[in-house]
């Protein structure tokens, strides 16, 4: 196994493009190292991107959005004074991952590229409209987060491509997002179902809505019809029921040791309701 610690993204991309066999990027390593220890993967090349300048920075972009370096950790996001005010759902999703120790290492980009259908930050990032910068030998392009995962453990990144930045759009007025997951315990567990909701209001009326489910299909599910169900209405009981029904109808889960099809489908509806209420109250100015 070869280990590299490049100082620039150009160098990193060249290494990835030239490497043979199994290649892994080492961000926090909370997936990669665990998988190596349990013999799930044995990389030939390991490329640590944490020494590249700027990868630990969280910066406000000119348009009022956010740019996160690819080594930014969950703890750095939670402790940031402003990020959580704009995107509490994204930050709380990341904050659910692991323990305090894991929080000090785990990154949202690693969470995304690991490709787990149950990854907690992914539905929240998609609901928020987050995008990533993908850089390869041919240069860089910006694509929405939802286009990265293509199946369990699989991403759309081509050989030689890595992610070099994560961006969140400007929050704007009267917006709120929320992420909830169901686990049988209170922490240190893997989502049986996850649900992110991102809303914008005009007064009490919803003007924009996005809902994304996790752990109920091979990749995060964007419930496009959520917008049709909610836009132009307040979050009344009918709207909540419609949303919950839509969530249930959008599930395509598996039966496994973590949950049954029936339980996952039912719980997706429960979480849709609960997450929508939180997002709605945040959009109305609540700070919790």
């Amino acid at each position: 196994m070869k280990y590299y610690k490049p100082a620039t993204f150009e160098e990193a991309v060249a290494l990835v493009a030239g490497a043979e066999g199994v290649t892994r990027i080492l961000a926090g390593g909370t997936d990669v190292l665990v998988q190596m220890r349990s013999d799930i993967i044995t990389p030939d090349t390991l490329i640590d991107i944490k020494a590249i300048p700027g990868t630990h920075e969280i910066t406000r972009t000119k348009d009022g959005g956010w740019r996160l370096g690819v080594a930014v950790t969950g703890a750095e996001m939670s402790e940031h004074p402003e990020l959580g005010r704009d995107w509490p759902g994204v930050v709380e999703a990341m904050d659910l991952i692991g323990s305090t120790q894991v929080q000090g290492r785990a990154t949202p980009v690693g969470n995304l590229c690991n490709g787990s259908p149950a990854a907690d930050s992914v539905p929240a990032m998609i609901a928020a409209g987050a995008a990533v910068t993908v850089t390869g030998p041919e240069g860089s392009r910006e694509i929405p987060v939802e286009q990265i995962p293509v199946g369990p453990g699989k991403t759309s990144l081509a050989k030689g491509e890595i992610i070099t930045a994560l961006t969140l759009p400007p929050r704007g007025a009267q917006g709120g997002d929320a992420y909830l997951r169901f686990i049988p315990r209170t922490e240190m567990d893997i989502a049986v179902v996850g649900c992110a909701v991102n809303l914008r209001l005009n007064g009490d009326v919803i003007t924009e809505a996005r809902m994304v489910l996790g752990a109920v299909a091979p990749t995060a599910v964007v419930v496009h019809a959520a917008a049709d169900a909610l836009v132009g209405r307040t979050l009344d009981e009918d709207a909540l029921t419609a949303l919950s029904d839509l969530a249930e109808a959008s599930c395509n889960p598996i039966d496994d040791k973590r949950g049954t099809i029936k339980f996952r489908t039912h719980t997706a509806g429960v979480l849709a309701r609960r997450a929508a209420k939180i997002a709605y109250s945040r959009a109305k100015g609540a700070t919790a």
Binding site: R185, T186, E187, I190
Partner: peptide
């Protein structure tokens, strides 16, 4: 929440603390 889960193949499916759900402090 704790239980040994065996698959139809007779293999233990949750040989680790991630899926063998011992209570955590909280």
């Amino acid at each position: 929440n704790e239980e040994y889960i065996y698959g139809a193949d007779g293999r233990l499916q949750n040989a680790g603390f991630l899926d063998y759900r011992i209570p955590v402090a909280s």
